[in-house]
Amino acid sequence: MTNAIQKLYPSTKMSIVLAVILFTLMMPGYISQYSVFPIFIIIAFISGVGTKFLSAFIKSIFVLVLFIFVFQCFLIPSDTVIWSKGILTLYKEGLEASLLMTSKIIAISSSLIWFFLVTPIKDMMFALEKAGFSKKFTFVIYSTIQLIPQMKKLSQTILEAQKSRGIETEGSLMIRLKAFLPMLGPLVLSSIQQTEEKVLALEARAFSATVRKSSYYQMSKKPVDYLVISVIFIGFMIFVWWRFFK
């Protein structure tokens, strides 16, 4: 993590996301919303996460946007027909609705994908604690994010173990259904029962101490953070003035 953008304070990055969301919702039309996407591609590449950004975007948003166009343009009938051939009819209202909808989805999603790619969890949790959120709150989020990959790995191990014990995982639906429980069962029971020991282990680490938690890991807002926040704030104010008062 040597990239200057990744090193920004989490709330600085969050303020960029918030500004994008508000701008996207307040701005009429769809052209400016669509232009948010290429801007974020550039920002993502500058932040050193360009490829990851594009791959996450294509995996999550692309199909959805495509489907929205098909649905709104061809399947929901309205008054004005733009184009028609055979059973396919393209409606003007549908086209406009899908442009408005997808432009917002793309803009907001790209800002969020970027945010989570360039903000280490550790920084996020530090900022949340610093902002006064309780340690229980950050603990639950942090341990969830850390536990998921561990459980995925564990389920893979169980899957392989069950396969080698001769439990069939391919074949008819009944066979596959039957394979499901012996796989999930041990995982559920062991992980649930482990929470019991985990409570005590946390208590042994003074989790219930009533003093305010400190952090060995430290990060702070630097001049560049204040600069970015000021630019965003002033820029947004100018936008609001232009949009509503001019």
Partner: peptide, 16 residues
């Protein structure tokens, strides 16, 4: 605390 610790477990189980 026990209930809180079930949250990460529940989320992971859904993922798995």
């Amino acid at each position: 605390l026990l209930a809180l610790l079930l949250i990460p477990v529940g989320v992971s189980l859904s993922v798995v």
